[in-house]
Amino acid sequence: MTGRSELVRQVLDEYGALSQRLLASYLRQAMARDDVYQLAADYPLRSGRALRASLCIATARAFGGSVQDAAASAVSLELLHSAFLVHDDIEDESDERRGKPTLHRLVGVPAALNAGDALIALSLRPLIGNRLTLGPQLAWSILEEAERMVRESVEGQAMELRWRQTTDADVSERDYLLMILKKTCWYTTIYPSRVGAMIGSRGELDLDLFSRFGFFLGAAFQIQDDLLNLTGDHERYGKELGGDLLEGKRTLILIHTLRNAAPPERARALRFLALPRAEKPQTELEWLMSTIERLGSIDHARRVAHALAGAAAHELSICLRTAPDGRDKAFIEALPYWVLERA
């Protein structure tokens, strides 16, 4: 493990533990009110990296804010992230999440859907509480950012679902990048860094710089996630390998394969993708994975992920040029490298 990766791991552990404590506190209060929050607490309390919360807190601190200033926004984001995961797992018909069965596999789809809605409701309270710690104007601005983030994420997910439902083969790399910009980047990297910058600088910084950085970092993160889905270590990855192909997801890898496959291979791949998940034969899945490897799609995605991480590092140097040196700044600077090294 490189020094940068070790720093990232330490900061994620520290801020992750902090976020978990605050999350647990919010959830305990909620669980005392109603049993629905017992279910809702399942995903937030499963161990995760807390990347989003850590990025929010670290960005705020890099520009002079405190952990207390950013904590509520970070907790809100983790609650919302859990809500998205619950709903995503239902939409994707996934079986595993963070090494355990998905919530809808445990309690059924209706109860899991409602638990996801409960998490959305819970995520609002910390943002409202920002009024007292950050002042009404900054709190309102963060609320507006949160509204935009949720809207972008929903629209991005809608794009992906449309592609899967229509088995639309004509999805370009640009379409894919736009989809992950909305679905993944906004709530994984853009929103946390924008809000952290707002809190740390009290609204003085140009937030579009963080949108650019967040997009490139989030895109590299997502493509690396797509790679791990096909090539990663199952135990460390926490989700089933090949799950994206079973769900028919249009990843950068699959787009490259469909564009470079011979017509008969392309037709065979499309037929496989159009089948319902439960009816997809294992042999066809294995054939498609070997075709992906043979056509160089894995290597292509890996090169793109590296280049995007490089772009993120470049944009970040502009974002952080006014931030003093320190551990939080070093942590953020290490992230473009960490997204490629993680497993």
């Binding site: 790399e173 640009r174 990048l177 736009l178 910009l181 579009d208 949108s211 650019r212 997009f215 490139f216 895109a219 950068l252 160089g296 290597d299 292509h300 090169r303 793109v304 590296h306 280049a307 995007l308 772009a311």
Partner: peptide
């Protein structure tokens, strides 16, 4: 060609985010 292809993708990403903003 593979490197050029990756370069094209990243170039497209830059244009996308600029238009988007």
């Amino acid at each position: 060609r593979p490197r050029q292809t990756a370069y094209d993708t990243v170039n497209g990403a830059y244009q996308l985010i600029d238009e988007y903003l």
